[in-house]
Design a protein around this nucleic acid. Structure first.
Lengths: 129, 129
DNA sequence: CTATATCATACCGATTTAGTATGAGTATAG
DNA sequence: CTATACTCATACTAAATCGGTATGATATAG
């Protein structure tokens, strides 16, 4: 079970933005400070923006700002937006025809619930230095 | 965050073996009952055997048996063997140079601990029908 | 107007997934 | 003893995903 670096980079950058809150920061700066490819981080922030976790400001002296206060933003929201889902197996959340008869789907169900509980229990401000 | 079907198939087959315990069952039968490709399941059982979760019996009327009683076998062992690791990010368990300064690694650490606790808390016999 | 930003899209090489193909080795039923 | 039923190793494949790059359009502060 592995999250991709998308989640790692995105979370790092979000923590960085939380430190700047309510100021905004451009991708350039975030990428430099967190040692991430600028272009890749641009795409990651496309996802975060469309998920309304972040607000963009175009043009000179533009950049990104957290859409909410750091103490309201849950890490689970960020991870879920970046990874697409938190479910450890496709069958655990979506409609699986054998759901009832399948013993292992019980495991994925329990696990997803736990992971979700854990990640939604962590607020962004608790990660500040 | 997704486990592969390797984990799903392996777990299903292990539950099936738990039902047969202490009898053994050939791959053919397991694959048919769980609707999994025979050849693919063969390879999955190679992993399980090398991890000593399962014992093989060669030749005619051979097959696989659980290496331990179903109430001693933890789901976490099975998943970890099949997935290679339970860590949600490479940096959470292995040596990461920025481990202390990295805010997000804190999240992966907490999460891995939770997932491990959850999966090792489930015994195979609790999944029997 | 111009420099600095976001933002969309398409491309790339590498790796992983899920599965197949081939065939060797092994033990047992009959 | 032999045919058969099984394990088991290795190599291959198509498709998807990953991490990243390239190109260029669009918006805006100053």
């Amino acid at each position: 079970m592995q999250f991709s670096t998308r989640a790692e980079y995105g979370l790092k950058a979000m923590v960085n933005l939380a430190e700047a809150y309510p100021e905004s920061r451009p991708i350039q700066q975030l990428a430099k400070e967190e040692r991430i490819s600028v272009k890749y981080l641009e795409r990651i922030f496309g996802i975060l923006r469309r998920s309304e976790l972040v607000v963009s400001h175009k043009g000179k002296s533009g950049g990104y700002t957290l859409a909410q206060k750091p103490n309201l933003l849950k890490v689970g929201e960020i991870i879920e937006a970046l990874e697409g889902t938190i479910a450890p197996m496709g069958c655990s959340s979506s409609a699986c025809s054998q759901k009832d008869s399948c013993a292992s789907s019980k495991v994925w169900g329990i696990l997803e619930k736990q992971v979700r509980k854990t990640l939604y229990g962590i607020k962004l401000n608790s990660l500040l230095k």
